[in-house]
Amino acid sequence: MTLLSVTHTTVYRYQRPVTFGEHRLMFRPRDSHDIRLVNTALIIAPQADIRWMHDVFSNSIAIASFQEAASELRFESRVVIDHYGLDYPDFAIEPYAQTYPFSYPAEEIADLGRSVERHYPDPDRKVDAWAKRFVEGSGPVGTQDLLTRINSAIQAEFRYERRYAIGVQTPAETLEKGSGTCRDLAVFMMGVARALGFAARFVSGYLYDPAVEDDQAPESDVTNGVQGAGDTHAWVQIYLPGAGWVEFDPTNGQVGGANLIRVAVAREPSQAVPVQGTFYGATGDFIDMDVEVRVTKPITT
Rank of each mutant, 00 (worst) to 15 (best):
V80S: 10
D82V: 04
D82I: 07
D82K: 13
Y84G: 12
G85H: 00
G85Y: 00
L86C: 06
Y88T: 15
Y88C: 15
D90R: 12
D90Y: 06
F91H: 12
F91A: 13
E94K: 15
E94T: 14
P95R: 08
P95G: 06
A97P: 09
Q98S: 14
T99P: 03
Y100C: 01
Y104A: 03
Y104F: 06
A106L: 12
A106P: 06
E107G: 07
A110G: 12
D111V: 07
D111S: 12
D111T: 10
L112F: 09
G113K: 14
G113M: 15
R114Q: 15
S115E: 15
S115A: 15
S115G: 13
E117D: 13
H119G: 13
P121C: 06
P123M: 01
D124A: 15
K126H: 11
A129P: 07
A129I: 08
W130M: 13
A131L: 04
A131W: 05
K132S: 15
R133C: 11
R133I: 13
V135P: 09
G139S: 01
P140D: 13
P140Q: 15
V141S: 10
V141K: 08
G142N: 12
T143W: 00
T143D: 01
Q144V: 05
Q144S: 07
Q144F: 04
Q144T: 05
Q144Y: 05
L146N: 08
L146M: 10
L147A: 07
T148G: 10
T148K: 07
R149G: 12
R149W: 09
R149H: 13
N151W: 02
N151M: 03
I154K: 13
Q155P: 03
A156L: 08
A156V: 06
A156F: 05
E157H: 10
E157Y: 06
Y160L: 01
Y160G: 02
E161I: 14
R162E: 12
R163E: 08
Y164T: 08
G167L: 07
G167D: 09
Q169V: 00
T170A: 08
P171M: 04
P171S: 06
A172I: 02
T174D: 02
L175A: 03
L175M: 04
K177T: 08
K177L: 10
G178E: 04
S179P: 02
T181A: 01
T181Q: 00
R183K: 14
L185W: 00
V187M: 03
F188N: 05
F188Y: 07
M189E: 02
M189V: 00
M189W: 00
M190W: 02
M190L: 11
G191H: 00
G191M: 02
A193E: 06
L196F: 05
F198A: 02
F198Y: 08
F198I: 00
A199Q: 02
R201I: 01
F202R: 03
F202E: 04
F202G: 03
